[in-house]
């Protein structure tokens, strides 16, 4: 089995997790910027975090042959402070040319507040001006449905947004069609209690197909499972999905979306899928 983990907060994980993911068949890890679990007190905290994502984590991942990529932003959980948000938005462009930066993310909404919407619009504008791809976080639990619709409105209002270069993550049964119908990519997050289980993820895959879908674990400082994607692949096998279909979903789909940015490179010769030959 080979897969790409397109959403993992590795700064919060131990080095053993890199080793375990590599052993499970992971071929690349992508890390969106997010909330540390506490509010950073100044723009300097974000500067250091962006250095960690672009310098330190790639080195840690490389020990296990894993390419590490990242997305940069101020997370919606920290968007209530508009002055801080402006300061962080101002330093992001200086990081965009770094070799592992894929775009702006994970931006979006958390509690669907006016300030969160304002900061989301500024991030979208920044991404459009710098021709960056976008990774969107949708809110949790009771706030997800409303937040997803507000986010779609914000994206549609900016004429520079190309839906094929935007992924809207953490979709569930009540939001997946909103995202796909609007032409965006959708991410299903396998996360205990608050997001999606493997069984439900596979239900959505069977109903909506895999044209513009990916799976991710979003492992972070909370209780979460860095192996959620390969474990879901095993569940797909149990549900009768072929090796080819599984490879398409967990390896080729993220590669196809992320590969729109030429910086996203994986050594394909090191990644041959043993099942390819048998299934051709």
């Amino acid at each position: 089995m080979r897969y790409i983990e397109p959403h993992a907060h590795m700064v919060s994980r131990v080095t053993d997790d890199y080793a375990t993911m590599a052993a499970a068949g992971c071929r690349a890890i992508c890390e969106p910027a997010f909330w540390a679990g506490f509010d950073r007190s100044s723009v300097d905290g974000f500067f250091d975090y962006f250095c960690q994502l672009t310098e330190h984590e790639p080195r840690r991942a490389a020990q296990f042959g894993l390419p590490h990529f990242c997305w940069l932003c101020l997370n919606p959980k920290e968007a209530e402070n508009l002055t801080l948000a402006e300061e962080v938005l101002a330093i992001i462009p200086s990081f965009l040319d770094r070799p592992n930066v894929l775009g702006i993310g994970e931006i979006g909404l958390n509690k669907n507040s006016r300030h969160e919407v304002a900061v989301l619009e500024k991030h979208i504008d920044l991404a459009v001006r710098h021709r960056q791809m976008i990774l969107i976080h949708t809110p949790h639990l009771e706030d997800k449905w409303k937040g997803t619709r507000l986010i779609l409105d914000c994206l549609k209002q900016n004429p520079g947004v190309d839906p094929s270069r935007v992924i809207i993550d953490h979709v569930e049964e009540h939001t997946v069609d909103l995202v796909l119908d609007a032409g965006f990519w959708a991410g299903i997050t396998l996360y205990p209690t608050s997001k999606c289980s493997p069984a439900r993820a596979i239900d959505m895959i069977e109903i909506y197909g895999t044209q513009r879908l990916w799976l991710n674990c979003a492992c972070d400082w909370g209780q979460s499972d860095p192996l959620a994607v390969p474990k879901t692949a095993l569940e797909m096998k149990r549900r009768g999905h072929s090796e080819t279909a599984i490879d398409r979903l967990i390896y080729q789909n993220p590669r196809r979306f992320l590969g729109q940015n030429p910086k996203f490179r994986i050594d394909e010769t090191a990644c041959e899928n043993p099942s390819d030959a048998a299934e051709k």
Partner: peptide, 22 residues
Amino acid sequence: LLLLSDPTAEPVAEAGAKSAAG
């Protein structure tokens, strides 16, 4: 999921607590 969702459409004035109740 819809039954457990906020059905309103307008952004709220302030975020308040960061976490969701379900």
